[in-house]
Amino acid sequence: MIHKVAETGSTNADLAARIKGGDYLPEGDWLIADRQTAGKGRLGRAWNDGSGNFMGSTAVRIAPGDPLPATLALLTGLAVHESLSGFKPQGRGLVLKWPNDLLLDGGKVAGILLEMTAGVVVVGIGVNLASAPKILGRKVCALADYGAVPSRDDFARALASAFDTELQRWRSVGLAPLLRRWQSAAHPKGTPLTVLPPGEDAVQGTFAGLADDGNLRLALAGGSVRTIHAGDVLLAQT
Rank of each mutant, 00 (worst) to 15 (best):
Q183R: 09
A70R: 10
R180P: 00
G174V: 06
L143T: 03
A176P: 00
R138S: 11
K134H: 14
L96M: 07
A156G: 07
A132H: 14
D145V: 03
Y146H: 15
P69K: 00
L175T: 14
R92A: 08
L178P: 05
D153M: 15
L103Q: 04
V80K: 01
R157G: 11
R169D: 09
V173H: 06
A132G: 06
L175N: 06
R180I: 06
S131Y: 04
E82I: 00
G174F: 08
F87Q: 01
L94D: 07
E82Q: 14
L113I: 12
L104H: 03
S172D: 14
D145L: 06
V127Y: 10
R171D: 06
G111T: 04
V120R: 01
F163A: 04
P69Q: 02
G147S: 12
L96C: 09
I125T: 06
S83T: 15
A148M: 13
G106A: 13
G119V: 05
S83W: 00
D105Y: 05
A144K: 14
G147N: 11
V173A: 10
G107L: 04
L175H: 08
P67M: 02
G174A: 09
G86P: 05
G77I: 02
L129H: 13
L78K: 00
N100Y: 08
R138V: 12
G106C: 10
K134A: 15
R138M: 15
L74D: 00
A156W: 01
F163P: 01
L104W: 04
D154Y: 06
R152F: 05
T165N: 07
R92T: 03
D66R: 00
L179V: 07
A148D: 14
A162C: 12
L178C: 05
L72P: 00
L103E: 02
L68H: 04
D66A: 03
P69H: 02
G147H: 11
G147D: 10
V95M: 02
L129A: 13
S161K: 13
T71R: 00
V121I: 11
G119Y: 08
D105H: 05
P99C: 10
L68E: 07
L129G: 12
A162K: 11
R138G: 02
S172V: 06
Y146G: 08
T165S: 13
P177Y: 07
P133Q: 10
L84K: 02
N128W: 12
S131D: 13
V109H: 03
K88V: 09
R152M: 10
L175M: 11
I135R: 11
L159K: 05
A70I: 01
Q168D: 12
G86F: 02
